Measured scan of single mutants.
Amino acid sequence: MSIQHFRVALIPFFAAFCLPVFAHPETLVKVKDAEDQLGARVGYIELDLNSGKILESFRPEERFPMMSTFKVLLCGAVLSRVDAGQEQLGRRIHYSQNDLVEYSPVTEKHLTDGMTVRELCSAAITMSDNTAANLLLTTIGGPKELTAFLHNMGDHVTRLDRWEPELNEAIPNDERDTTMPAAMATTLRKLLTGELLTLASRQQLIDWMEADKVAGPLLRSALPAGWFIADKSGAGERGSRGIIAALGPDGKPSRIVVIYTTGSQATMDERNRQIAEIGASLIKHW
């Protein structure tokens, strides 16, 4: 067993022997301040990774656009098919120029040779490549099948209805392509620590998230040296922004954090800054 596999296998073990965790309302004060600064709703939840206990939450059962955070769930569904012998990570998928959609920095470079399922998941999570996500959605049967996968996990809230990039439209009061912070946090925890996926697939999923290259201005910008984070960000229309993450000190994750916002007129930089400040408060009061 590799060191990384050992780390993920012992996530519940280490967490069980940690000192009790206590909620700190100071972080919620910052979440509410972010709402004021952005002029928009902000949803927040913080779960203990081992027990699933909610440590703090704000608007945990209000719907927010998922945006690209759905790509972690998508690759979880792909990995479940791999575990069941219905898919192979090494299978190569070929596609054409007509398949390319807006923001496809990886797939646009491989029109000639195609990409493997493993490479597509890596591109979808680490670079948020939209064509990679659409190609992977095709392998599982489309958005409705991802929703069905989530329902089978016990998540009857999260739903995907459309493809990239239309799913980022974020129309107010439109339930399409949305989740709730509580539902997303619980589902992410199941994917990373539950028995739904094999140990190898859980490790692969967290490795992809740990290698995320496009979430630097968010929670990662607030992390002290030595902290662990595996995350996936999302951005959408109407001032929408979000991030889902597993993080913790001492090089291992111990909490799940989900943050979503929508309806702001603020710039992307300002949305990023507010999420980073929430992260800084979380870490300060850990």
Score class of each variant (00 low, 15 high):
residue 1 M to F: 02
residue 2 S to T: 14
residue 4 Q to N: 15
residue 8 V to S: 15
residue 10 L to C: 11
residue 10 L to F: 10
residue 12 P to G: 12
residue 12 P to R: 05
residue 13 F to E: 02
residue 14 F to V: 11
residue 14 F to I: 13
residue 15 A to W: 15
residue 15 A to D: 02
residue 16 A to G: 15
residue 17 F to H: 10
residue 18 C to T: 12
residue 19 L to P: 10
residue 19 L to I: 15
residue 19 L to F: 15
residue 20 P to A: 05
residue 21 V to Q: 05
residue 21 V to H: 05
residue 21 V to F: 05
residue 24 H to G: 14
residue 24 H to C: 09
residue 24 H to R: 13
residue 24 H to E: 12
residue 25 P to I: 09
residue 28 L to A: 10
residue 29 V to W: 15
residue 29 V to T: 11
residue 30 K to D: 05
residue 30 K to I: 09
residue 32 K to Q: 15
residue 32 K to L: 12
residue 35 E to N: 03
residue 36 D to N: 13
residue 36 D to R: 15
residue 36 D to Y: 12
residue 38 L to F: 08
residue 38 L to D: 06
residue 39 G to K: 15
residue 39 G to L: 11
residue 39 G to W: 08
residue 39 G to Q: 11
residue 40 A to D: 05
residue 41 R to K: 15
residue 43 G to A: 08
residue 44 Y to A: 02
residue 44 Y to E: 01
residue 45 I to T: 12
residue 45 I to W: 01
residue 47 L to D: 01
residue 47 L to P: 00
residue 49 L to E: 04
residue 49 L to S: 07
residue 49 L to P: 05
residue 49 L to G: 05
residue 50 N to H: 12
residue 50 N to W: 10
residue 50 N to F: 10
residue 51 S to V: 06
residue 53 K to S: 10
residue 53 K to D: 09
residue 53 K to V: 13
residue 53 K to G: 11
residue 54 I to H: 12
residue 54 I to W: 08
residue 55 L to D: 04
residue 55 L to P: 02
residue 56 E to H: 08
residue 57 S to G: 11
residue 60 P to K: 15
residue 60 P to F: 09
residue 60 P to Q: 13
residue 60 P to M: 13
residue 60 P to D: 15
residue 63 R to F: 06
residue 64 F to T: 01
residue 64 F to I: 02
residue 65 P to L: 03
residue 65 P to F: 03
residue 67 M to V: 10
residue 68 S to R: 00
residue 68 S to T: 00
residue 69 T to Y: 03
residue 69 T to I: 04
residue 69 T to Q: 01
residue 69 T to G: 02
residue 70 F to I: 06
residue 70 F to N: 05
residue 71 K to Y: 00
residue 72 V to D: 00
residue 73 L to M: 11
residue 73 L to F: 08
residue 73 L to P: 09
residue 75 C to W: 00
residue 75 C to K: 00
residue 75 C to V: 10
residue 75 C to G: 09
residue 78 V to F: 04
residue 80 S to P: 01
residue 80 S to I: 10
residue 83 D to K: 04
residue 83 D to A: 05
residue 85 G to Q: 10
residue 85 G to Y: 08
residue 85 G to W: 06
residue 86 Q to C: 11
residue 86 Q to G: 10
residue 89 L to K: 04
residue 90 G to W: 11
residue 91 R to D: 06
residue 91 R to S: 07
residue 92 R to E: 08
residue 93 I to R: 03
residue 93 I to C: 06
residue 94 H to R: 13
residue 94 H to Y: 15
residue 95 Y to W: 10
residue 95 Y to E: 01
residue 96 S to V: 11
residue 96 S to C: 10
residue 97 Q to W: 11
residue 98 N to E: 15
residue 99 D to V: 09
residue 99 D to C: 06
residue 99 D to Y: 07
residue 99 D to F: 07
residue 99 D to Q: 13
residue 99 D to K: 08
residue 100 L to W: 05
residue 100 L to T: 07
residue 100 L to G: 03
residue 101 V to N: 07
residue 102 E to N: 10
residue 102 E to Q: 15
residue 102 E to S: 13
residue 102 E to K: 08
residue 103 Y to D: 04
residue 104 S to K: 02
residue 105 P to E: 05
residue 105 P to L: 06
residue 105 P to N: 05
residue 106 V to H: 08
residue 107 T to K: 01
residue 107 T to D: 01
residue 109 K to I: 11
residue 110 H to C: 08
residue 111 L to I: 13
residue 112 T to V: 13
residue 112 T to G: 15
residue 112 T to W: 15
residue 113 D to S: 13
residue 113 D to K: 12
residue 113 D to M: 10
residue 115 M to W: 02
residue 115 M to R: 05
residue 116 T to C: 07
residue 116 T to A: 07
residue 117 V to Q: 03
residue 118 R to N: 15
residue 119 E to S: 09
residue 119 E to D: 13
residue 120 L to E: 01
residue 123 A to C: 08
residue 123 A to M: 03
residue 124 A to N: 04
residue 124 A to D: 01
residue 125 I to E: 01
residue 125 I to Y: 00
residue 128 S to G: 02
residue 129 D to F: 00
residue 129 D to Y: 00
residue 129 D to H: 00
residue 130 N to S: 05
residue 130 N to T: 02
residue 131 T to W: 02
residue 131 T to P: 03
residue 132 A to V: 00
residue 132 A to T: 02
residue 133 A to R: 00
residue 135 L to E: 06
residue 135 L to D: 01
residue 136 L to Q: 01
residue 138 T to I: 11
residue 138 T to G: 13
residue 140 I to T: 06
residue 141 G to I: 05
residue 142 G to Y: 02
residue 142 G to P: 02
residue 142 G to C: 04
residue 142 G to T: 07
residue 143 P to A: 07
residue 143 P to S: 06
residue 143 P to C: 06
residue 144 K to F: 15
residue 144 K to S: 15
residue 145 E to N: 15
residue 145 E to R: 14
residue 146 L to N: 02
residue 146 L to F: 12
residue 148 A to C: 14
residue 149 F to Y: 10
residue 150 L to V: 13
residue 151 H to F: 09
residue 152 N to S: 15
residue 154 G to A: 07
residue 155 D to S: 02
residue 155 D to I: 01
residue 155 D to V: 01
residue 156 H to A: 14
residue 157 V to E: 12
residue 158 T to C: 03
residue 159 R to N: 07
residue 160 L to A: 11
residue 160 L to T: 10
residue 160 L to D: 02
residue 160 L to Y: 02
residue 162 R to E: 05
residue 163 W to I: 10
residue 163 W to S: 09
residue 165 P to H: 05
residue 166 E to R: 11
residue 167 L to V: 14
residue 168 N to L: 05
residue 169 E to G: 14
residue 169 E to F: 12
residue 169 E to D: 13
residue 170 A to H: 09
residue 170 A to R: 08
residue 171 I to F: 13
residue 171 I to H: 15
residue 171 I to P: 07
residue 174 D to M: 04
residue 175 E to C: 12
residue 175 E to T: 15
residue 176 R to K: 15
residue 177 D to E: 01
residue 179 T to K: 00
residue 179 T to D: 00
residue 179 T to P: 00
residue 179 T to N: 00
residue 179 T to H: 00
residue 181 P to I: 04
residue 182 A to E: 10
residue 183 A to C: 08
residue 184 M to C: 06
residue 184 M to W: 01
residue 184 M to T: 03
residue 185 A to C: 07
residue 185 A to D: 00
residue 186 T to M: 15
residue 186 T to L: 15
residue 187 T to W: 04
residue 187 T to F: 06
residue 188 L to G: 04
residue 188 L to E: 01
residue 188 L to V: 12
residue 189 R to M: 10
residue 189 R to I: 07
residue 191 L to K: 01
residue 191 L to N: 02
residue 192 L to Y: 06
residue 193 T to L: 11
residue 194 G to D: 13
residue 194 G to Y: 08
residue 195 E to H: 14
residue 195 E to D: 14
residue 197 L to Y: 05
residue 197 L to K: 06
residue 199 L to F: 11
residue 200 A to W: 07
residue 201 S to V: 03
residue 202 R to K: 15
residue 203 Q to Y: 09
residue 203 Q to L: 10
residue 203 Q to H: 15
residue 204 Q to Y: 09
residue 205 L to K: 00
residue 205 L to Y: 02
residue 207 D to Q: 13
residue 207 D to T: 12
residue 207 D to N: 11
residue 209 M to T: 02
residue 210 E to N: 10
residue 211 A to E: 14
residue 213 K to P: 04
residue 213 K to Q: 14
residue 214 V to E: 05
residue 214 V to S: 07
residue 215 A to G: 09
residue 215 A to K: 05
residue 215 A to S: 09
residue 215 A to M: 03
residue 216 G to P: 05
residue 218 L to V: 04
residue 218 L to D: 03
residue 220 R to V: 03
residue 221 S to A: 13
residue 222 A to T: 14
residue 222 A to R: 15
residue 223 L to T: 13
residue 223 L to Y: 03
residue 224 P to Q: 06
residue 224 P to N: 06
residue 225 A to E: 14
residue 226 G to P: 07
residue 227 W to D: 00
residue 227 W to R: 00
residue 227 W to E: 00
residue 228 F to W: 05
residue 229 I to H: 02
residue 231 D to K: 04
residue 232 K to E: 00
residue 233 S to K: 01
residue 233 S to Y: 01
residue 234 G to C: 06
residue 236 G to Q: 02
residue 237 E to P: 14
residue 239 G to K: 02
residue 239 G to Y: 02
residue 239 G to L: 01
residue 239 G to P: 01
residue 240 S to I: 01
residue 240 S to N: 07
residue 240 S to Y: 03
residue 241 R to D: 02
residue 242 G to P: 00
residue 242 G to N: 03
residue 242 G to C: 06
residue 243 I to Y: 06
residue 243 I to L: 10
residue 244 I to H: 01
residue 245 A to N: 01
residue 246 A to C: 12
residue 246 A to N: 05
residue 246 A to E: 06
residue 247 L to W: 07
residue 247 L to D: 00
residue 248 G to R: 02
residue 248 G to H: 04
residue 249 P to Q: 09
residue 250 D to M: 12
residue 250 D to F: 12
residue 252 K to N: 12
residue 252 K to A: 13
residue 252 K to V: 14
residue 253 P to E: 06
residue 253 P to I: 10
residue 254 S to N: 13
residue 254 S to Y: 09
residue 255 R to I: 06
residue 255 R to N: 02
residue 257 V to H: 01
residue 262 T to K: 08
residue 264 S to W: 04
residue 264 S to L: 04
residue 265 Q to N: 10
residue 265 Q to F: 14
residue 266 A to C: 13
residue 266 A to H: 10
residue 266 A to N: 12
residue 267 T to G: 14
residue 267 T to A: 13
residue 268 M to E: 06
residue 269 D to T: 11
residue 270 E to T: 14
residue 270 E to V: 13
residue 270 E to Y: 07
residue 270 E to M: 13
residue 271 R to T: 11
residue 271 R to G: 08
residue 273 R to V: 10
residue 275 I to P: 00
residue 275 I to A: 02
residue 276 A to S: 13
residue 277 E to R: 12
residue 279 G to D: 03
residue 279 G to Y: 03
residue 279 G to A: 10
residue 279 G to S: 10
residue 280 A to Y: 10
residue 280 A to I: 14
residue 280 A to R: 14
residue 280 A to S: 15
residue 281 S to K: 14
residue 282 L to Q: 06
residue 283 I to D: 01
residue 283 I to K: 05
residue 284 K to T: 15
residue 284 K to D: 14
residue 285 H to A: 09
residue 285 H to V: 09
residue 286 W to K: 02
